[in-house]
Nucleic acid binder design. Sequence first.
RNA 1: GGUCUCAUGGCCGAGUGGCUAGGCAGAGCUCUGCAAAAGCUCCUACAGCGGUUCGAAUCCGCUUGAGACCUCCA
Length: 501
Amino acid sequence: MALYEKYPVSISNSLSGNKELFVPAKAPFVGLYSCGPTVYNEVHLGNLRTFTSFDVVFRYLTHIGYKVRYVRNITDAGHLTNDAGVGVDRIEESAKLEQLEPMEIVQKYTTSFHDVCRIFNVLPPSIEPTATGHIVEQIDMVKKILSNGYAYEVNGSVYFDVRKYNETHHYGELSGRNIDELLEGTRELDRQDEKRNAIDFAIWKAVSPNHIQRWNSPWGEGIPGWHLECSAMGTKYLGDQFDIHGGGMDLKFPHHECEIAQNVGALGKSPVRYWMHTNMLTVNGEKMSKSKGNSFLPRELFAGSHPLLAKAYSPMAVRFFMLQSHYSSTLDFSNEALSAAEKGFKKLSNALTTIKSLNHPGNGNDDATLAADLKRMVGECYQTMSDDFNTAKTLAVLFEMSSRINDFKSGNLKFAAVSASTFEEFKNTYIAMMEDVLGIKDEESHNQELMDGVINVLIGLRKKARTDKNFALSDKIRDELKALGVQLMDGKDGEMNYTIE
RNA sequence: GGUCUCAUGGCCGAGUGGCUAGGCAGAGCUCUGCAAAAGCUCCUACAGCGGUUCGAAUCCGCUUGAGACCUCCA
C-alpha cells in the first residue's frame, strides 16, 4: 500500500473554493505546474516563498509515492506592461538599462535564480521550460484559438475575445469576476484601442521593428501574449488537462483566468483540475512587491545588508520561518519573527544530527504506551502534510519528536522500552520529514572537515584540562571558541559536542 | 468605487462547532565543577457588539481595524 493511499491528500482548490480530496487523473502519475519567475531582475523573498511552497508540494507528493512531473517555467520573453501597448517590455527595458542583450539579461538572472534555489534547498523541477524556447507552440495555440473563433486579428496583433468566449463559457470562474463589472470598470479607459473590448487580452502582440526581442509569425513580427506561455508549455508537457497548477495569489487574475480561457478556447478543455494559490509575504503588514520597494533580496537577507534587516539570517532559518505558516496565509516578516525562527530551526536541526547518530541496540520490546506515542507522531506527520500540506502542523509534530529524540539521547527514554523496528520507523520518519519533505538540511559551512578536525583537537585539550581539574584552562578554551561562534557542550559521559552559530 | 480576505496569548503563528497546536520570549525546577544543550512545570488567548446552538476562536449579522485583487508582480 502506497503512502498516498494510506494518507490521502486533500488540497484547497481555488477553483471550487473548497478543500477537496486529491485524486490524480492517472495515479500514480501527477502533473504539477507552477509559474516561475520572470528573469528580468533578481527574485525577492516573496517570490521565494511561493517557490518554496511548491517545492514542498513536489517533495511531499514524491515522497508518498506519486510519480510527479513538475514543470516550472522561466519567463524570458518580454511582456508588455499594459494592453494599451504603451507599456514597456520589462526584459527589454532591463537590457537597455544594463546595456546588455536581452538574452544576456535572461541568462544572468536565470543563473541567479538557480543559485538562490540551491541555497534555499529548492529542488530543480522535472522540466524548466522557457517561453522563448516555445514560440512555435505558442503560435500554434494562437492559430487554434483563432480558428475556434475566440480571437481576432488587428494590425498584426491577435486578441482573445473575452465577450465572445463568455457567451458559451464562464470567464471569471477562477477569480470570481463578473464580466459585466469588468466591462463597466474599464469602459472609461477604453480609448481608440485596437481591442473590441477593454477586457480582451493579447495572445500575440505586434512590435515595432526597433524592438530587439521579436519573432516571426503568421501575423507579422511580434511577441507572444503575457499569459500564453503557461498554457502552451503546460499543455505540451502535462497534457490537455493536468492535476495541479500553482502560483502566487496575485497571478489568479488576470493571468490564470486568461490561461483557462486560452486552453478552453484552443482545446475545448479546462486545463487544470486543482488550482493552488499561495499567499503573499508581507512587510509591516504590506505586501512585499517590487513596485512597492519594500522587497529585499535573498542575498541581502543572509548578508544582513538591507535597512529592514537587523542582522543576517541563515537560509535554512528563513526556510523554516516560511514553513511555520501555511502557504495560504499571509506571512508577515519581522526581525523578531526571524530571530525566533532561527532558534526553533536550530532545535530541530540539532535533533536531526542527534537522531542520525542514535542506533537501536536491537534488544528491546515495545512498551505499549511509548510505542503508541511514537507511532502516533509518525502518523501525524503524514496526516498533517496530507491535509493541504500543513507544514506548520507538521513542524509542531517534529518539535514533539525532537523532544523524544533528546530523551533517547540523554537516557530519559530507554532503548529497551521500544523495539528496533518501532525506533527505526520513528527515526526514519523524522529524517525523511526534515530532509526529504520539508527540505531542511544542516547548514553547510566551508571547510567543514577541516573545521571539525581543528575543533576536535581543541576538544581533546579541553578534556585533558578538565581531567586535570584545570578549569581555568578548560573555560578559556570554551570561552574563546564561544567568542568565535563555536559552542562546546559537555555530555554526562565526558564526551563533548559542539555547534556552530 | 467594485470584488474579496483577514483580525488568535508579550511576539510569530496552527486551528473551521465540544477534546482548549507549536515555536520564540518570560518564571521555576532537574542535570552539570561552572556553562551550554537537554528534560519537566508554569504563563490558557481568540477585535467589539448581537444572534444561532446544549455548547463557538470556529456558523450568521452588524461595527471597527488591516490587507489583497481590479495595472506588471510569486
